Computed example of a mutant assay.
Amino acid sequence: MVDHQFQYTKQDDLPIPKRIGEYRVIEFVSRYTEAQGSVYKALGPDDTVVAIKVIGNSFQSYSHSLIAALIGEDDLEALKREAEILSKLDHANIVKFLHTGEDAEYGTYLVMEWITGGNLRTMLLQYPERKVPTTVSSHIIAQILSAIEASHNAGIIHLDIKPENILLTEDGSVKLSDFGVAGTSNDEFMAGRGTEGYMAPEQIDLSKINLIGPRTDIYSVGILLMEMLTGCLPQRENIEGNILQEVPASLREFIRCATEESPDSRFTSAEEALRHIINIK
C-alpha cells in the first residue's frame, strides 16, 4: 500500500480553485463534514450563478488520484448517491439539483442552484436570544414539512435536518438542502448517521436502528422548532420541562408529539404534521 503523506490546512490557507469543470469559481462558501469537502459559489458558461459541492479539496494537493486514495471510494459514491437522490426530487422547498460532472483535478462535483439568503443558523443569530417569533417559526416549519413530505413520498429520508441545512431565499422561502446522509427505508443504517442534538433516539441507539423511517425526520423537525422558539437546543430530558413553558400551548403540543421517544407515538407522517402546523392559530 502506498503511504500518501499530506498536510491538512484550514480553508483560509488554501487557494480557491479558479475553475471546476466548466464553472468559474467566485468564492468559497462553506465546508461540509463528509470527507472534508467544500461548497463554492461559481459562474456557469451562461453566467448563471450556481453552488458546486466537491469532495476532498481541503487538502493541499488537489490531485484526483490522491483525493481518491485519501477519502476512499465510499465518499465519492456518497456524493454520487446524493446527486441521484436530488435528481428524483422536484419541489419548491428543496434545493434544485442541476447535474454532476467530473473534473480532471478535483474529481466528481455536484452542481445545484444558488440560494442567496443564507441559512437558518444565520437567521437565528439575528434574533434577540435567538428566539424566532411564533408566526415566522411556524411558517418556516410548514415549508420544511412540505419538503419532507415530498421527499418521503419519493421514498427518501433526509436524516440530517438542522439549521445549517435549511437555506433561505431573499423572499423568505425555505430550501431543504444537503442530502449527503439521506437514505431509503430499504437501507441498512448505522448509528450516529446525522448531527448530534437533532438526531432521533433511533439514530443514536444501535438497538433501535431498525426503527429509522420517515418519522425520524419528524423528530428532527420538532427539535428544530423547539430551538427556534426557545433559543436553545435542549437535551432530551428537558423537552417536557420548563423550557417550553413560554411556548404557546398549540406549538408546545406539536413539539411534544413530534419528539416522542417512540416513532409510533409521533405524527404518522409529514403530511399530518404539516396539517397540524398549518391549523395552529
Rank of each mutant, 00 (worst) to 15 (best):
A69R: 09
H91I: 01
A35H: 04
Y23N: 12
G37H: 02
R31Q: 10
E73M: 08
N57W: 10
G44S: 15
E27N: 13
Q60W: 03
R24P: 01
A83P: 12
S30N: 15
A42M: 04
T48A: 13
D46I: 01
Y23M: 05
D75F: 10
G37Y: 00
D46W: 00
T33M: 02
K41H: 12
T48W: 00
F28S: 10
E34N: 13
R31V: 03
A78M: 13
A92G: 09
E34V: 01
G72L: 06
G37I: 04
S61N: 11
D90W: 02
D74Y: 07
S38H: 09
G44H: 07
N57H: 11
E84D: 11
T48K: 14
S63P: 01
S61E: 11
S38L: 13
V49A: 11
D90A: 11
S61H: 09
F28W: 14
G44F: 11
A83Y: 08
I85V: 14
S63I: 03
V50M: 06
S87C: 09
D46G: 01
A78E: 12
Q60L: 12
G37W: 02
H91M: 08
K41R: 15
S61Q: 10
V39I: 15
I67Q: 10
S61I: 08
A78C: 05
A35T: 05
A35W: 04
L76R: 11
A78I: 07
V29I: 15
L66H: 07
K88E: 11
I94A: 08
F59D: 00
N93R: 12
Y23S: 08
A68K: 09
G56C: 01
V49P: 01
E84C: 06
N93F: 14
L70Q: 09
A35V: 04
L86P: 00
Y32F: 14
V54I: 15
S65Y: 00
T48S: 14
R31S: 15
K80I: 04
A69D: 12
G72R: 04
N93G: 05
I71Q: 10
V25Y: 07
E73L: 11
I71H: 04
Y32D: 02
L86I: 08
L79K: 10
A68T: 05
K88N: 09
T48P: 00
E73S: 10
S63L: 08
L86W: 09
L76H: 12
V25M: 12
S87P: 03
Y62R: 13
P45F: 07
K88C: 05
Y62T: 11
I94K: 05
I67N: 07
R81T: 12
E73Y: 06
E22F: 05
R81S: 12
G72T: 04
V29M: 15
D47G: 04
G37V: 03
S63H: 10
K80Y: 04
E84A: 15
L79Q: 14
D46N: 15
G21M: 09
S38I: 02
L70E: 04
K88V: 00
L79F: 07
S87R: 14
R81F: 13
K88Q: 14
E77W: 02
V54F: 02
G44Q: 08
L66S: 01
A92W: 03
L89N: 03
E34A: 10
G56P: 06
A78P: 04
S63M: 03
F59S: 06
G56K: 07
R24K: 15
G37E: 01
T33A: 13
V39R: 08
D47K: 13
